[in-house]
Design a protein around this nucleic acid. Structure first.
Lengths: 211, 211, 211, 211
DNA sequence: CATGAATGAGCCTTCATTCAT
DNA sequence: TATGAATGAAGGCTCATTCAT
């Protein structure tokens, strides 16, 4: 096996294990998944997992990091491709968020469900990738506030968090309910409308609450 | 000991166990909490827990049911005490949601974090109480839509879910960050404003998207 | 079960586990013995062992400490019962050492074989009881040197070590060979004679070798 | 590559592995040493070890055999070079034993510590080389007995065993304590004196105990 | 011959649950 | 009812060994 191939062989095996873990974790949750479940999902021996990951916790964290990075990259790329201002991008963000989830149901379920609990109790893990994700949303909102298309009496950090929560919760339902794409587009549209209307400036906003 | 007393004695012990479980689950998560942790937190013997609950899963579910019922009752009571229309009540709902959480941090953390994962994987549990909670929000929104103070082009089920998600996510941060009450009131206010502005009718809503 | 009984019950179970461990370790060595082997030797469940010992290493160390203490106590008691001077006591020491071993073959084999290796590699264990054992021998020798019945040109620490080594090695053979008691007495006698003749003063010792 | 060269190439690699094993076993003991530790100590791949040795047990045994053979050869050679009778040779034997150990600390530690336990539990191994080693000592003693310079009321087998034990135990201390050569010479001298005085004939020996 | 990635049997340990008191 | 010692099934992880390259 040439070195390049072996390199690729390794990466492929690592990726297969991550995919197996994703499937298994999404289906049964981290704590109800045995390492051997992941192994058989991935089609490798139990011990092989430990050639690529330090332990079960590390597998969880690595999966987060890896998939979040992928999501963030896709989100960044696709948002940049949207021309127009902040509002169209915000709408695109919501649509993307939802459609990504529907196309990658396991991933959606995994992130939605495990992000909170497992990550919280897997000792000392701080989940930097999730922060990066939120940052995309937040910087979009701040730009909107600077440009005047979004009301500036709300804290961007708070708002981005709230939006993420709204999306995440609705997503969880979508993931579990196996809704058809048309419905997804519609639901994404409704949520986007609600959020944008909630964020666009009106008369009564003038006296900002954070001044 | 009269029967009533014994009954009450039981209830008190049951409640102590639930409180112990709440503390333990909130702190370490369901899967990282041993039954013996709950027992020592509650000041009873390990075996005693099995006199009141069928098993560890049952303890989790019972805790959900019990606490959610309490929350729902308080929410209903306090919302009814708010006079005025849908909008003030919606604002009150948000404020209540947040302040309840701050006053009962363990409870907030427990519900926020465990609601999704544990409940999902504890076999066959459907979580009816959570449905009842959402129902309060949803009926409020539907009333607002009927009365014309809230836009009616959005699906109330979807919206209530989104609102819950937004609140829940922000709450999680509050719970973890130990923010002071003043900040909490302010943040609740901002979220309420955003949501209400997103839900009140405007010109461009006329052609409803769900027609 | 009354408290006293339970106390005793505990001690009995702990002792049963130690005995099981002794048997198993003597037969197969520490590293070739499974915890479950010890458990079945002791007639308890695997998990029970962990109620009395922190882990497998702790079981080994506890066994050492416990048995060495017992040996030391017996040795002290029986030596004190020997009247006469240092020489009879030295002879008694050798006889005791050997007969103890023959009567408690498992114990002899365990201590002889495991004392060195296992103890050495069980992290950070310093084996204080073994030191106490050697001390008995050494103080006997020093007394003999002070009283003039043993040559004083030899380092008592070194000599006691050498004697222990000689006894230990011969013991190992006895333990493995299953020799009859008569032979043991005879062999002990020979060794004692050799050692004592090697330690009693002669003309040529006068110029001490450590000058 | 000529056959002879390849042969030698092999032998060199085999020797490197044995050296790696010696280092590793001496440092951490047989059971706490991974085959991969030996491999990296030897600078070869894990699998390579299995080209030269059947398995881990075989590696241990081979190491014994090989090193004991070397020791025996050196001992024989150097003893033959000692002119004079049995007594000077006995003294030389002790000095050699000790100095060999100090010059090859790893070897000393390995043999001292592992000889008993590992060898005993590595299935069915009888350790013939160790017998050969003892034989050197024993034949020396028997010659002394025949020549009348050593008392003949003691069993030579027993005595050689005891002497080995004494040397081995003292050695273990030396190996662990990293004593300077001067001390070693002195300690060897003391031990030799004690043993020889214990073995030389005296009046009271006449009635032999083994008659 | 040499490599080292892959394998999977095996073992220590945990912890939910039971039950004699 | 209450206890908590005992149980033993289950699972994470290690590491000797193999084999395709």
């Amino acid at each position: 096996m040439a070195k390049a191939d072996r390199q690729r062989g390794n990466s492929e095996k690592r990726e297969r294990i991550l995919q197996g873990a994703l499937r298994a974790f999404a289906q049964n949750g981290f704590y109800n998944t045995r390492v051997s479940d992941v192994a058989s999902e991935a089609g490798v021996a139990d011990g092989t997992i430990y050639l690529y990951f330090k332990n079960k916790d590390d597998l969880l964290i690595s999966l987060f990091e890896d998939r979040m990075e992928w999501i963030i990259d896709r989100l960044r790329d696709e948002l940049e491709a949207v021309d127009g201002g902040v509002l169209p991008r915000l709408r695109a963000f919501v649509q993307l968020h939802f459609h990504l989830a529907v196309e990658h149901r396991d991933l959606a379920e995994f992130i939605t469900v495990e992000l909170r609990q497992s990550a919280k109790f897997v000792k000392e893990y701080e989940n930097p990738k999730f922060g990066a994700y939120l940052e995309i949303l937040r910087s979009l909102i701040e730009r909107g506030q600077r440009e005047g298309v979004l009301r500036s009496d709300l804290d961007s950090r708070l708002v981005s968090r709230a939006i993420f929560g709204a999306l995440d919760e609705v997503l969880l339902q979508l993931a579990l309910a196996h809704k058809p794409p048309a419905d997804v587009t519609d639901e994404a549209h409704q949520i986007a409308e609600m959020l944008i209307d909630g964020l666009t400036p009106r008369e009564h906003h003038k006296p900002t609450s954070t001044e």
